[in-house]
Design a protein around this nucleic acid. Structure first.
Lengths: 236, 236
DNA sequence: TGATCTTTTGTACGATAGTACAAATCACAT
DNA sequence: ATGTGATTTGTACTATCGTACAAAAGATCA
């Protein structure tokens, strides 16, 4: 008889805890935290509502565990890719590699969770929009380090751009990334079917290319707006 | 003796209907649709919960009315600015003007609502993330025309870029725009206080500049992406 | 097998949700 | 001042929320 697990950390044969986590992740990512009830999650997971309470104590605890599951692997993968990107000699290529190291793990999973990267990133996007408190705390203390590392790496490739501008542009990158995962159908619609907003590979390439170009844009902090004239004038 | 209003369309002296709309708009934009109760809105507006039902019938009806209030003016202003931008001769300047015509009304109000532009745009961002049904319907039938007009205008300035790429990049623009309004504090935090994410003027300039550069990036549709050397450079 | 621990189930409780509706109140034309 | 229609108030109803908890069921090992 095969018997590998000790009694302490085993769950049932069909792992209910995991099923609940997966169902919650999916539902939260699509509908937001507040619109999904514990009963909805339980039903989607084929579990009893009480099981959710048993495994995660509260609804917040469930969300917290989802974050714990993904943050580690994703940031680890980002660190690896970032380290590799830093070793690229050509500054131009390095910039692209760094951006790619930031973007790719958000679309594709960082570890055992297959294809869960995009789902979790979408979850983060939605929680961010909802101003979810649990998420806010985790984000600030888990992702800011990573964000700083990327900003520094980008700054390394573009020393002549003020750090402030890089912060703004990397912020735009994250916004674009989030939005691409939240409403991919809009891309399909506006392109009249010529593009598939749900295609991760396309999204990544488009995003990386557009973002690299935006980082390379000339800085504007320099208090010298003489170059361009005020273009807008239509109001009375 | 002042007598301007006819009895038919007047509300109370302190216009309750407007107060409710304003309160709802603010609360929805910050916390999302589902997290805000009708009672929350009524309290914030200094009204009775029943008044909300009286004026707007349902909570969905209230959201619908908020959209009706803003969509017209904002799209009107965008059309004006877009028309003006189209008249700019220099292609480079025209591109920037077009982008600005898209961005500016989202941050600043389009009509009588003072400063409400950013709030409403943030509301749209949050509703989009939550997958709100009421919002989805209105968006598709109200904003897609505008979006197409902008995409076409940009395509005019950049004829060598495939329309598909322009759709993606304008999608990124909207995502960046939304995200800037949803979590401006992140910019302040990551820049270590050097930038104020809440400053609309800075956000607009940064966003316009970054976006123009992203639109100008070389197209990537071209089937064979070997080792490409991007042409964009900032040296003068 | 029986004892013990873990997990699942079922049910219930208090809080709060959206909304309906009658009564009270107000603004204003007559 | 008075009647009338537009608003506001107060309250109540039903549904659903998150969560607690005891009992049932399953697993583990002496």
């Amino acid at each position: 008889m095969v018997r590998k697990p000790t009694s302490k950390e085993t769950a049932r044969k069909p792992n209910m805890r995991e099923a609940i986590l997966a169902a919650a992740e999916e539902l939260f990512a699509i509908n937001g935290f507040n619109a999904v009830s514990v009963r909805d999650i339980a039903q989607a997971a084929g579990a009893n509502p009480g099981s959710v309470t048993y495994h995660f104590k509260t609804k917040d605890g469930l969300l917290l565990e989802i974050y714990r599951r993904h943050c580690g692997p994703m940031n680890l993968r980002r660190s690896e890719l970032l380290a590799a990107a830093r070793r690229v000699r050509d500054l131009q290529d390095r910039l692209e590699a760094v951006v790619r190291a930031y973007v790719v793990p958000a679309f594709t999973s960082g570890s055992d969770l297959a294809g869960g990267g995009a789902r979790f990133t979408r979850l983060r996007a939605v929680m961010s929009a909802e101003g979810n408190e649990v998420a806010r705390k985790i984000i600030a203390q888990t992702f800011d380090d990573t964000s700083h590392a990327f900003i520094d790496a980008i700054h390394e490739s573009l020393p002549h751009i003020p750090r402030t501008d890089i912060v703004w542009r990397s912020h735009f990158l994250l916004g674009a990334l989030y939005y691409s995962l939240v409403t991919p159908d809009r891309v399909s619609r506006l392109s009249r079917g010529e593009a598939d907003g749900g295609d991760a590979a396309s999204a990544i390439e488009q995003l990386v290319q557009a973002t690299v170009a935006s980082f390379q844009a000339p800085p504007l902090d320099h208090a010298a707006p003489a170059r361009r004239r005020p273009v807008v004038s239509s109001k009375t």
